[in-house]
């Protein structure tokens, strides 16, 4: 395992190898190397299976962190490859030629996070959010509750009471002053 970490570090500048559990690890690479790293992992390192791809909005540091989850079925272990992209201009190389389902994930990330994968088939088509006009919905700064409150009416007749304030009102109203 550490050999792979060394190999990835030497070839692609990968860093931060972390064993999450005995059959799962993660490693970090520069986004610009992602296609090369994935091709290497698929063809040379035994990680032939792409479980899924997704992104995490690390809004605090202005980055989307991509997660590519691979599995080596023969060695029975998984590897999550991370790559940060600039949140202001999120563009990543497409890996749709490496795996037949990757384009769907890339289309999803384009719609949900606004991350672009130039060259990926149908990447600009709507995926699940038909007719959606808001910002990419999985971004942390899209407040789904505020959106919902603004878009839909509350059912009338709903009112609740905070026990502590209710008791203050009933039992010692003078303290409210």
């Amino acid at each position: 395992m550490n050999e792979l970490a060394k190999e990835l570090a030497g070839r692609y500048g990968a860093r931060g190898w972390h064993d999450i559990r005995k059959d799962l690890a993660s490693v970090e690479v520069d986004a610009i190397r992602i296609r090369d790293v994935m091709a290497y992992l698929r063809d040379e390192a035994g990680y032939g299976h792409l479980s899924f791809m997704t992104a995490i909005d690390n809004i605090e540091r202005g980055a989307f962190t991509l997660s590519y989850a691979l599995r080596d079925h023969d060695a029975r272990r998984g590897l999550i490859v991370h790559a940060d992209v600039d949140r202001a201009e999120p563009t990543v190389d497409s890996i749709h030629l490496l795996w037949g389902q990757a384009w769907t994930y890339q289309r999803e990330m384009r719609e949900w996070f606004g991350i672009d994968f130039p060259g990926s088939p149908r990447v600009d088509e709507e995926f699940v959010l038909e007719g959606w006009e808001g910002p990419p919905m999985m971004r942390r700064d899209f407040d789904s509750l505020a959106y919902s409150d603004a878009t839909y009416a509350e059912r009338p007749g709903r009112v609740t009471h905070d026990p502590a304030s209710h008791m203050r009102e009933k039992l010692y109203p003078e303290a409210a002053q």
Partner: peptide
């Protein structure tokens, strides 16, 4: 799905909000 509402015949008292 849950609101706390005043219940008829129950007043707030020590250890019971009456809701």
């Amino acid at each position: 799905a849950i609101d706390l509402v005043p219940a008829a015949g129950r007043e707030a008292k020590d250890g019971d909000s009456g809701l």
